Simulated scan of single mutants.
Amino acid sequence: MDTAMLRDDMVAGLEHESKAVVESERVSAAMRTVPRHEFVDDAAAYADHTLEHAGTRVLAPSTAARLVEALAPESGDRVLVVGAGVGYTAAICAAIAGEHNVHAVDISRRLVIDARRNLARAGYDGVLVDRRDGTHGLAEYAPFDRILVEAAAVRPPRALEDQLAADGRLVLPVGTHDQSLVAVEGGTTERFGPVSFAPLLVEGEQSDTVERNRTHREDRERAERTAQRRTGWEHDWIDWE
């Protein structure tokens, strides 16, 4: 299987006027370079549809292209991707900005491990991927020239806004049921049409959260206290006559 040819065909389809989601030479070149089959199942790697992996949605190539086009990263930009997923979008950013300039976080430990492995196999092991609550960003590596959030929020998290460089650009889906892809830069907001993303999770909401060890004990003790609690007819201060 000639994966380079498959990538060329995929990007050509995304550039075609029927979709027209790849518009810049930078994004076109990056998507033709990044081996998407290292991030998803080989058979479906270059088809333009979403996939499922470890309880999360793997973005279709057209959606990934829309995000990166809205982000507009340039060579040398410091980039933060919130919601690393399988690592594909971070790889596209790395192909543009340079892998050591790209950082990614995800709230799911399993996805962090998978993204690291996928990026290394694809040749972008210089991308830093860490397990974090994305609403807190990655303050120790701030400021960032570009921040991309791959999950929806009602408004941009304050921590992410604070971690933007003075002329930085923040891109995220905004809204609940009706969402729009929005870019915030220099106090102005630019919209890039409707999208549909899962909500941005905070610590404790992720599917692989470790259950507290005492939860079952608490439930048992609460049930025992309830069973031993006096009912109305057992209280001697009630005059039932």
Results as ranks from 00 to 15, higher is better:
Ala70Arg: 12
Arg169Pro: 00
Ala20Arg: 13
Glu17Ser: 14
Pro143Met: 09
Tyr46Thr: 00
Val11Phe: 05
Gly85Trp: 01
Arg117His: 10
Ala153Arg: 04
Arg26Asn: 04
Thr188Asp: 14
Gly98Leu: 04
Ala60Ser: 08
His53Leu: 15
Ala115Ser: 14
Thr33Pro: 00
Ala139Phe: 12
Leu111Phe: 07
Leu111Arg: 05
Val154Glu: 15
Arg66Ala: 01
Leu67Gln: 06
Arg146Pro: 03
Arg110Leu: 15
Arg155Thr: 15
Asp48Glu: 04
Val171Trp: 04
His100Pro: 03
Gly168Tyr: 00
Trp233Thr: 10
Arg7Cys: 04
Asp106Tyr: 03
Tyr141Pro: 04
Gly134Met: 08
Leu6Trp: 14
His49Leu: 10
Leu51Tyr: 02
Ala183Val: 05
Ala47Gln: 09
Arg131Glu: 15
Arg229Trp: 15
Glu161Ser: 06
Arg146Val: 07
Tyr46Trp: 01
Met31Trp: 01
Thr3Asp: 11
Asp162Ile: 08
Gly76Ser: 06
Thr209Met: 11
Thr226His: 14
Glu211Gln: 10
Ala104Lys: 05
Pro157Gly: 03
Thr56Ser: 11
Pro199Glu: 06
Pro157His: 02
Arg169Gly: 00
Leu138Asn: 04
Leu201Ile: 08
Val195Gln: 09
Glu224Leu: 13
Thr50Asn: 07
Arg121Lys: 14
Val210Asn: 07
Ser108Cys: 05
Gly87Ser: 08
Pro143Tyr: 10
Ala152Met: 09
Asp130Ile: 12
Thr3Val: 12
Pro35Arg: 06
Ser207Ala: 12
Ala120Ile: 04
Ala227Met: 12
Val149Phe: 06
Thr56Asp: 13
Pro35Lys: 05
Glu190Gln: 15
Ala91Tyr: 02
Glu25Ala: 13
Leu111Thr: 03
Glu52Tyr: 09
Val182Gln: 15
Ala43Tyr: 09
